[in-house]
Design a protein around this nucleic acid. Structure first.
Length: 502
RNA sequence: GCGCCAUUAGCUCAGUUGGCAGAGCAAUUGACUCUUAAUCAAUGGGUCCUGGGUUCGAAUCCCUGAUGGCGCACCA
């Protein structure tokens, strides 16, 4: 920020920083060893009475540090609240106790400064656990004022662009990201306990495969070739199942060059997992058990309210075929319809728009599902047996070649996971890739390219395998009650503002 | 990409019919040794998002652009 754009308050704070230097104090000071953070301080001293705490003999004084969030300086004594990751604690600074120099330091300090205090616990007349300061240490000068103390930072754009301020001012926001971390931690520990191996596969892909999505393109200089940021790790993880691992998973970022919305960010975090010798049923059982474990360990319940809907995440989720669900919602039974033109007619009768690259029944069935069923799936539901045309990497169902052993998990009208009994017949896989290429020619920008190396891997033999991918951001939204994906991403993508900035 | 809405002090927000730009917090100065949205007194702080237009006069009306939010489309 150029000097001529500084506000009055910024100028004053810079002057104060210079005054500190003049007094031999580094405005951006150094290490301060703490005996407690605010949480452990409250745990250690929160249960004493006012009298007990006065009598308390400490081996060493308490050393605690944090950002000044409010101050009430009144003549020759004053209070302030300081904040660290775990919360706020009041400090009491009194001229008699700290001496003139340190008292001036406290008095001239600003909200937003970071300070250390050395002292003893006390309880005020109003009953608040407080640090009675014996030594007051300036640690870091804040050169800009914090947002207003009572309302905090309200502006949604500012909260996304300057997340650090949001984290300082809005406890809810901080709690969301702590919970996000816990959710992923519990996911890992659940899977590790079950014997899955966590792996990392390339993010730069020569062929963008494993999902239907438009990729980001980049370029490698030395190899002088294009690379795609991965849209899915699927084809690499399956190579690892060929390689003999029983169960593998990867938690990581996927990149899809598509619209940004309340539930889409160009990069998002997924869990993708494969289990040898398993199948679709195995993935359903795993999903129920894992999400149940996560919710119980993180939020301590399996009944949640999301968007004013009560959702029961306890085990025993509904499992229903896509065609049965469509029949339930619309009365149309696609298992009885064989003719594409008839299906197309049914779709148009119901006001659905059928794009050119839709050349078969399966696309119409999927369209019906997305248009008429998805939204009403409030309670956790596994919708299975997807049309083969929209599932290029999935095994066919044994009883009907038009459908595949695939499910998606829906909760609160939104998709959370996508699972398959994996296709392990290399010749079948080859044909599916070829069909994808045809779709691409017909205008589908998301269709897969042929991955010959992957076919070759399958030719060595992949055991029967169940696979699943989860959208972690959405799971976090569900468990934190966030309405927008941006509320669970620390730094959601924003268009750069004029000038520079990210 | 399309539609609707928003943008006023560092922050949270008012601003009437088009008629001098406002409050609270924060800041500055002073008083105050258990306050807690501390209190009291005084003071300073504005590209009213940008650029045009209408008008004697625009924060306010019209047009353009920027950024954001929401909805639609695409998708997970």
């Amino acid at each position: 920020m150029s000097e001529n754009k500084r506000t009055e308050q910024e100028i004053v704070r810079r002057e104060k920083a210079n005054e500190l230097r003049d007094n031999g104090i580094d405005p951006f000071g150094s290490r301060f060893d703490r005996t407690h953070n605010i949480k452990t301080f409250k745990e250690a001293f929160g249960s004493y009475s006012k009298e007990e705490i006065k009598e308390l003999e400490l081996d060493e004084p308490v050393r605690i540090a944090g950002r000044v969030m409010s101050r009430r300086v009144k003549g020759k004594a004053g209070f302030a609240h300081i904040q660290d990751q775990y919360g706020q604690i009041q400090i009491y600074v009194r001229l008699d106790n700290v001496g003139e120099d340190q008292y001036q330091l406290f008095k001239k300090g600003d909200i937003g400064d970071i300070v250390g205090v050395i002292g003893k616990p006390m309880i005020t007349h109003t009953g608040e656990l407080t640090v009675k300061t014996e030594t007051f240490v300036h640690l870091t000068k804040a050169l800009r004022p914090l947002p207003e103390k009572y309302h905090g930072l309200q502006d949604i754009e500012e909260r996304y662009r300057r997340r650090y301020l949001d984290l300082i001012m809005n406890e809810d926001s901080k709690d969301t990201f702590i919970l996000r971390s816990k959710i992923i931690q519990e996911m890992r520990s659940y899977l590790n306990d079950k014997g899955y191996l966590e792996v990392e596969t390339p993010i730069l892909h020569p062929i963008a495969g494993g999902a239907n999505a438009r990729p980001f393109v980049t370029h490698h200089n030395t190899l002088d070739m294009p690379f795609y940021l991965r849209i899915a790790p699927e084809l690499y993880l399956k190579r690892l199942i060929v390689g003999g691992f029983d169960g593998v998973y990867e938690i990581g970022r996927l990149f899809r060059n598509e619209g940004i919305s309340i539930e889409h960010n160009p990069e998002f975090t997924s869990l993708e997992l494969y289990l040898a010798y398993s199948d679709l049923e195995g993935m359903m059982d795993l999903t129920e058990n894992m999400i149940n474990h996560i919710t119980n360990e993180t939020i301590g319940t399996d009944t949640i309210t999301y968007n004013d809907q009560e959702i029961d995440l306890s085990k025993g989720w509904r499992r229903i075929k896509m065609t049965d669900l469509i029949k339930e919602e619309t009365g149309v039974d696609f298992t009885d319809i064989d003719d594409f033109e008839e299906a197309k007619k049914l779709a148009k009768e119901r006001g659905l728009d059928v794009p050119d690259h839709f050349r078969s029944m399966g696309h119409i069935i999927n369209l019906f599902f997305e248009s008429f069923c998805e939204e009403s799936l409030t309670q956790p539901t596994f919708v299975h047996d997807y049309p083969i045309e929209v599932s290029p990497l999935t095994k066919k169902t044994p009883d009907d070649e038009r459908f595949t052993e695939r499910f998606e998990l829906f909760i609160a009208g939104r998709e959370y996971a996508n699972a398959y009994t994996e296709l392990n017949d290399p010749d079948d896989q080859y044909e599916r890739f070829k069909n994808q290429l045809k779709e691409k020619e017909l205008g589908s920008e998301e269709a897969n390219d042929m991955d010959r190396d992957f076919i070759e891997a399958l030719e060595y033999g992949m055991p029967p395998t169940g696979g699943i991918g989860y959208g972690i951001d959405r799971l976090v939204m569900l468990l934190t009650g966030a309405e927008s994906i941006r509320d669970v991403l620390l730094f959601p993508h924003m268009r750069p503002r004029e000038g520079n900035q990210s």
